[in-house]
Nucleic acid binder design. Sequence first.
RNA 1: GAACCGGUAGUUUAGCCCGGAAGAAUGCGGGACUGUCACUCCCGUGGCCCGGGUUCAAAUCCCGGCCGGGGCGCCA
Length: 435
Amino acid sequence: MLCLKKTFMEDLPSLLGRQVKIAGWVHKVRALGGLVFIILRDCTGLCQVVVKGNPDLVKLARSLNMEDVIEVKGIVQRSRSRQFPVEVVAESISVLNRVIGGVPLDVTGAIEADLGTRLRYRVADLKRPRNLAIFRVQAELVDAFRRYLKERRFIEVHTPKIVVYATEGGAELFEVKYFENIAYLAQSPQIYKQMLVIAGFERVFEIGHAYRAEKHSTVRHLNEYVSLDIEMGFIEDENDLINFEEDLIKYMLQSVEENCSRELKLLGAEVTIPDRIPKLRFPEVKEILVEYYNLKEYEDAEDLDTRGEELITKYVQENYGVDMVFVDLFPLSSRPFYTMPYDEVYGRSFDLIFRGLEVSTGSQRIHQYELLRQMMIKKGLNPDDFKYYLEAFKQGAPPHGGFAIGAERMTMKLLGLCNIREASLFPRDRYRLEP
RNA sequence: GAACCGGUAGUUUAGCCCGGAAGAAUGCGGGACUGUCACUCCCGUGGCCCGGGUUCAAAUCCCGGCCGGGGCGCCA
């Protein structure tokens, strides 16, 4: 009895002349009378199955519909196809499961559905090779992030997503019923990352969800997103973080370029790795907007809006030939309470803007108990609400800081997707809670 | 919270301005076809988001609702 394990499509070219067992989804059937071509898909790609000679087998092959799940045993041979170098000549086919009522979307990509329809039928949509490619690239970004940090003595942690801290900034929180109390979904692992650095972990990172209860409905916001967070102790100031992040980002891009060439080609995306990411300061950026672009309305700006982010990207493209830029020293007024002040007005807080979108934010944090307390009060927060957090700062807090990268935003910008929902498997937005 | 744009077979789309029998592609069902590669050809199946109004007559014009897209505010 044959007991071959499943062979993946991408391995077939190296198995010429061998008998294999392949399995997957029927991507397409091209039936020419007594000769049937089945294009079969698995997670590694497509393959052509040829069925001929055996009338029963031909009949079975002709009865297949798109997305039926089948297993094929046969011999790998060179193909006359223009699309495939090899093909499997079927000796037997077993139908593992049939589609009921047809697939709601065209998986082959010939008919492009609207994003709303695609998200409604997300499972069928994700079958499209293009979508698998998006998430392979995302997985590579995340994996590279993890590899890079682990090699530099960072420890991966998992902090609570159910929290009580009422707020740390302007962002609104989702309320959660927690037995007899009210809790919230964490909008960031910020407070816990810091406490772990203080606890002596020194360098931590976390890949986890963050929740924002903002009623926005745009192509770049999600109410649940994946945050690539790091926090590290014993930094000089935020410049250490910026330089560190610059190398990290370059490594992540390099990894995608090296390990996802097939995906990038399929998506028509190109990765450009800057030699150096320019670093500007907020006052300079403001000056560029006011002087260079002659936009007087930015004279009193305390933060960058969408247009500002797009223009500054345009500026560095034209003047530095790159599509990312660090902007440092944002006004304290637009940053959270834990931001280390640079002077009275500015904070040691920075953004990374990539192709017109903020994909990362970070800062040196305040490590002095009294100053932290003061800043909370200044921001209108009640120190009593942060009792456990504040307490930690009395127990030996080193100078420290960190940053977070939005995984979906990074993926979106890298691949040139026009909607962040495309970079989220099952996006949660203002009006979408399922699937 | 909200300018604006849109909603026609499962999916994509023509028709809407200028009211008069709703057409196509793809899928699905049937048939022909032994090297397709968006296979081809023939037949069939299946649709105007919901409610109200105007009119002899509404997919088409008007109003309301629902759903989708979406720049803004806010936010990362």
